[in-house]
Each structure stands twice: as C-alpha cells, then as structure tokens.
Design a protein around this nucleic acid. Structure first.
Lengths: 96, 96
DNA sequence: AATATTTGGTTTATAAAATAAACTAATTTA
DNA sequence: TAAATTAGTTTATTTTATAAACCAAATATT
C-alpha cells in the first residue's frame, strides 16, 4: 500500500534539483543555487549524491577562467523521478 | 518557487501515518503498524513526534487488560497535511 | 505450576542524513 | 595591494530515522 520512497529523492533539496533538471536541458551550479535557495556547500554535497546514483550527469569545466559545473538529468534519473512521484501518490491520494 | 516542506511530514513513516489518519476516524497502534509495515519502536517514536506537533491526538487506554493506543488526526494535522501536499506539487508538476 | 511465547508497547543506541561552517583558489574591485 | 566576490569543495555538527534492546502483562506450552 505504501511503496518505499526512494531516499535519494525524498530529500527537499535533491528533489528540488531533480525537479529543475527534469524541466530543463541543463543547469549550472549557480542557477541551481539561486533557484533552490540552498547554500553552496549543501548543494555541492547533494549534487554529488545524485551524480553517484547516476540520476544526473555533471560536467565540470571553465567558463573563461571561472569554474563552471553543469548538471543534466539522465534517463535513470527521469525514471527514478517518475517512480518517486508515482509512489508519492499512494501517500497523498487517500482522501477522496 | 520551492516552498519549504514541513519536515515533520516529509518523513516516509510519519507521512504514511498521517495518510491513514486523514482517511479514517481513528486507528490504533497495531493497525498503523500493520498498514505501514513499520517496527513498533519506530512507529512509537514517530507517533510521539506527530502528537508533540499537535498533528494527531493519542489516547492510551486498555482494551480488556492489554494496552491500546488510539490515534486520530487533529484540525491542525489536516491543515498541515494539506499544506504539505500543496507544497509538494511545486516539486512534482514541472514537466508539463 | 512453572516456563516459554506473544502482544503491545517504550527507551535507548546507532547509523545515516541534512546542513552549515570553514576553507580554497582564482578574480574583480576599491 | 588589500579587500571582497565568485564558484565551488571539504569537513564538522546537528538532526533524523531506524532498529535493537528492553518491559510488563497475557496467553499458551510442557
């Protein structure tokens, strides 16, 4: 009845990041930080976890001379996100 | 854009408990344990937290001679649950 | 009748998470 | 040239979730 909620996605910040990345081709670190309101340290850690899970790809390069981290969601990430939202319905849809 | 998700509800087990209690007049400990698949210890702790937050009422009595803990959602709990589900939409509904 | 098991929990300990604080290294700006 | 900003990472701290250990009463077993 209550499906297991993927703990990697059941986290406010990681979910916000995935939510952005699913609607956009790619997004850089600064943009993600602005949109989520997270601190850089927290964001850095959570991006790393999503990357480790294979849910996002991370490309670190330089824009001019400043470092630039660009993230994009993977197929695996899309599936996971969709599964998560489906599973969540089981927790929210009781009332009707 | 990304509303804060009430940390008391953004927890798999507590959310499951609230999900049950919002659809039912009351539920006892054993029923909640069966439905959620939680261990007694975990459930006990999370019920206590929901009670402390004023999201549920907890009535401890005896059925015959065995202890019996009955839980029911409060108005505050209903509001919080509804606010939480609304906030979550902001995280899920991006794709379209 | 004594012992083991089950029921309905609570308390305590542990492992995992989220988060912020401190730091780095390069770059502007004053 | 010193101070502040940018774009991060690493490390430390606080919270959390969760399970393990425990307790008291009831029921079943030998």
């Amino acid at each position: 009845m209550f499906e297991e909620l993927d703990p990697l996605l059941h986290s406010q910040l990681r979910l916000a990041v995935m939510s952005i990345l699913i609607s956009v081709d790619e997004a850089d670190f600064v943009y993600l930080k602005e949109q989520t309101g997270a601190t850089a340290g927290n964001l850095s850690v959570q991006i790393e976890k999503l990357k480790e899970a294979g849910y996002i790809g991370v490309n670190k390069s330089f824009r001019g001379k400043m470092p630039c981290t660009v993230c994009s969601i993977t197929k695996k990430g899309i599936s996971a996100f969709e599964a998560y939202t489906r599973a969540l319905q089981g927790y929210l849809g009781k009332k009707n």
